[in-house]
Nucleic acid binder design. Sequence first.
DNA 1: TAGTGGTCTAGACCACCTG
DNA 2: AGGTGGTCTAGACCACTAC
Lengths: 252, 252
Amino acid sequence: MNDDVVWPDDLFADLDRTGPVPLYFQISNRLEAAIRDGRIPAGSRLETEIGIGQRLGLSRPTVRRAIQELVGKGLLVRRRGVGTQVVHGQVTRQVELTSLYEDLQSSQHEPGTTVLAHEVVPAPEKVAESLGVDPGTDVLFVRRRRSSDGVPVAIMENYLPSAYADITTDQLESRGLYQILRARGVTIRVAKQRIGARREERDEADLLEVDKGSPVLTMERVAYDATGRAVEFGQHCYRPDTYTFETTLIAK
Amino acid sequence: MNDDVVWPDDLFADLDRTGPVPLYFQISNRLEAAIRDGRIPAGSRLETEIGIGQRLGLSRPTVRRAIQELVGKGLLVRRRGVGTQVVHGQVTRQVELTSLYEDLQSSQHEPGTTVLAHEVVPAPEKVAESLGVDPGTDVLFVRRRRSSDGVPVAIMENYLPSAYADITTDQLESRGLYQILRARGVTIRVAKQRIGARREERDEADLLEVDKGSPVLTMERVAYDATGRAVEFGQHCYRPDTYTFETTLIAK
DNA sequence: TAGTGGTCTAGACCACCTG
DNA sequence: AGGTGGTCTAGACCACTAC
């Protein structure tokens, strides 16, 4: 029985066997592209791991790893004894670890930043606990207002260890915090965040240009680098008509 | 050089080589437990893949897979040419795909449910689009109020394809929606959700026992089964002082 | 019974980091 | 220079599903 999809012949042409890009990655990338743009239709069945391997001259583990990659992204479903199938209909994007600035950039809006505060302060208790330092230790405090196409989106308060005290206001106004950190060789790998809601407080209504007593969406985040050291603690509040959190969850 | 951790001798005793539990899974499970309870301390370095394999009589790929499992969970960090290290300090739990009911159950509170509406209705346009059916098609509509230890937590409105119209009010009051679906052989695998905030509307203030005009946290969710077919569309609103969303993000 | 994916083995070569 | 993880190969056996 062979009602498998026969994908475009050139899908896997020009595999680069010598370059630095892993084969499984080249394959999963091309497969993903073909699924997303419909060249491999939703619901269709894929050829066998072994079959693919033979046609491409690859070992089964390599093909398997490429496929597994897409299973993890929720694009493929596998059942033992049955085969591999493209999910029906819904093709979802992955949850990614980005800053608001990058979110706005990628959504084709023009991000703007106003730095409202930028100073070294003694760490309040909650901040100290989150960053894993002693209360009262000097930390960098930054308060910014973010806008998109001129409309206020968020007020962001961040605390960083004093090792980052030399970050400049210029940098903060032209780039996202995570971009600045990455340029310093710090990669954020894990973030714990808590999303909630409350009434606007203090000067937030003015800054977000909403009525007094309006609801705001809140997010608290602690971000860690590759070795698990806390790099940033943030308390942000968003104007709910200009920003929502979208996530895609995939069960293990 | 060997400043590697020597973990408790019995950590990998009693590996079951014949049973149905994969070896890599047994290993990653025990490793995870040892890391979480501190038997393997934060920041310490692990033995080499090959070294572990030799001591346990396992091949490198098997050991590698077990380790990779924990890297994906954010508990281990690997660097080529260096080694594998337990993450410093912060040990995080995984994001999971659960319903509110299960969230409350696992947090040791007593969940309560009041079914406010339970009927078959023609699908509104937005619902039809989310579920992938024609507008006006019959769908099951359920509106519930959830509470925890007697305090209102959320109002949940769900729409399901009419195939699920035989779900009973009794079931809805005693179990979570996802538990009911699972008992029918439907496993939720992917969910897209959007989290936001707004003012309370209509009867929500009364039901949540908050002041008129109070902010509420909102969540919209479309859930899909293993083959990508939409199973459930939900619009929920939460009392922000009794519920927040907590997530852990791990960069690829 | 035939075919699928799930697991596992025992090697190999390479890029990268540390000394 | 030596050791690490990253990748890849070519097999093998098994559990499960469909026919």
